[in-house]
Simulated assay, not measured.
Amino acid sequence: MTHPAPPDTRFGVRSVLALVALALLAVPFGLLLFFVQDQWPPLQRLDDGARDALHRVALHHGGFAATMKVLSFVGSAPVYVVAFTAITLWLARAGSRRLAAFVAVTELGGAVLNELVKTLVDRTRPVVADPIAHASGLSFPSGHSQAAVVSYSVLLLLFWTALAPVWRWVAAAASFVLVLGIGLSRVALSVHYVSDVLAGYALGAAWVLVMTAVFGAWRLELRAPADKVPTSSEA
C-alpha cells in the first residue's frame, strides 16, 4: 500500500515544476527582447507588416475598428482597477485575506513590472498615417496584453473549483478568446507591434506563475489551509 507524499514534498515538486515552467516562459520573452533590441529584420518585417495590414482593415471597415476599440477598452486599466478592487474587498470582507492579498499584489505588481520593463527597453510606439487611436507611453511589452493574461488567469484561479466542470472549460475558452482579442486590438489600433503583444503574454504568464508559487509558499510557511472563494451565503 502506497502512502501519499507529505505536504512539504508535494510543495517541493510543485515548486520545481513552476520553476521549469517559468524558465520555459522566460525563453520566448528573452528572445523577443533580444530581437527587438537587435532590430532583427524578420521580426521588423512581421511587426511592420501586421501593423500596416491591420491598420488598413481598421480604416476601411468601421465595424472592425469599433470592435477593436471595445476590446481595447475591456482590457484597459480603469476596467481592471474597478473590477479587482471590488473582488479584493469582497474577499477581505469574507475573511479570505490571503486570497485578497494574492489578487491585489498580483494585479498591482504586474502593472509596476510592466512599466519597469517598458522603461528599461524604451521602445517607441508604432507610427501610422491617419491613426484611429492614440496611446501614450512606451511600447514593449504591451501592458494590455500582459494585464489580460494576469487578470483572466487570476479569475480562473479564483473561481475554478467553484464552477461546475463544463463551466470551467467554458470560462477557460472565453478567457483565451478575450486575451487573444485584446492583444489583436492593440495591433489593429496601431498602438503596439505584434512583438509587444507576444512579450506581454509571456511576461504576464511568468508573473502569474511567480505569484502563485509565492502565495503557495506563504500558505505552507504558515501551515494554513487554503483560502476558498466565499459562496454567496458566506459573503
Rank of each mutant, 00 (worst) to 15 (best):
P41C: 14
P42G: 07
P42N: 09
L43T: 02
Q44V: 07
Q44C: 12
G49Y: 01
G49T: 08
G49E: 04
G49V: 06
A50T: 12
D52S: 14
D52P: 09
D52Y: 06
D52L: 14
A53H: 10
R56L: 15
L59G: 04
L59C: 02
H60Q: 13
H60R: 15
H60N: 11
H60D: 08
H61S: 14
G63A: 06
G63L: 07
G63V: 04
F64D: 07
A66D: 13
K69Q: 13
V70P: 03
V70R: 12
V70Q: 08
S72I: 04
S72R: 01
S76D: 14
S76V: 05
A77L: 15
V79N: 06
V79K: 02
V81A: 14
V82N: 12
V82K: 13
V82F: 11
A83S: 13
F84C: 08
F84S: 06
I87S: 08
A92L: 07
A92M: 08
R93Q: 15
A94G: 05
A94H: 02
G95M: 01
G95F: 02
L99H: 02
F102V: 05
F102E: 05
F102G: 09
V103S: 08
A104K: 09
A104V: 04
L108V: 14
G110F: 06
A111D: 15
A111W: 14
A111S: 15
V112I: 15
L113G: 03
L113T: 08
N114E: 09
V117E: 03
K118W: 00
K118Q: 00
K118M: 00
L120R: 09
R123K: 02
R123L: 00
T124Y: 10
P126G: 03
P126W: 00
P126V: 01
V127I: 09
V127C: 07
V128S: 03
A129E: 12
D130K: 13
I132G: 01
I132N: 02
I132M: 02
I132H: 01
A133W: 01
A133P: 00
H134A: 13
A135M: 02
A135V: 04
A135C: 03
S136K: 14
S136C: 07
S136V: 05
L138P: 02
S139L: 01
S139M: 01
P141I: 04
P141S: 05
G143H: 03
S145T: 09
S145D: 08
A147H: 10
A148D: 06
S151G: 11
Y152Q: 11
Y152A: 06
S153G: 12
V154Q: 04
V154R: 05
L155V: 14
L155W: 07
L155R: 11
L155P: 07
L157S: 07
L157K: 10
F159I: 12
F159A: 10
A162P: 14
A162G: 14
L163A: 09
L163W: 08
P165V: 02
V166N: 12
W167I: 11
W167L: 15
R168C: 05
R168E: 03
W169Y: 13
V170D: 01
A172H: 08
A172D: 01
A174F: 10
S175L: 08
S175D: 04
S175Q: 04
F176Y: 13
V179S: 05
L180A: 15
I182P: 01
I182K: 00
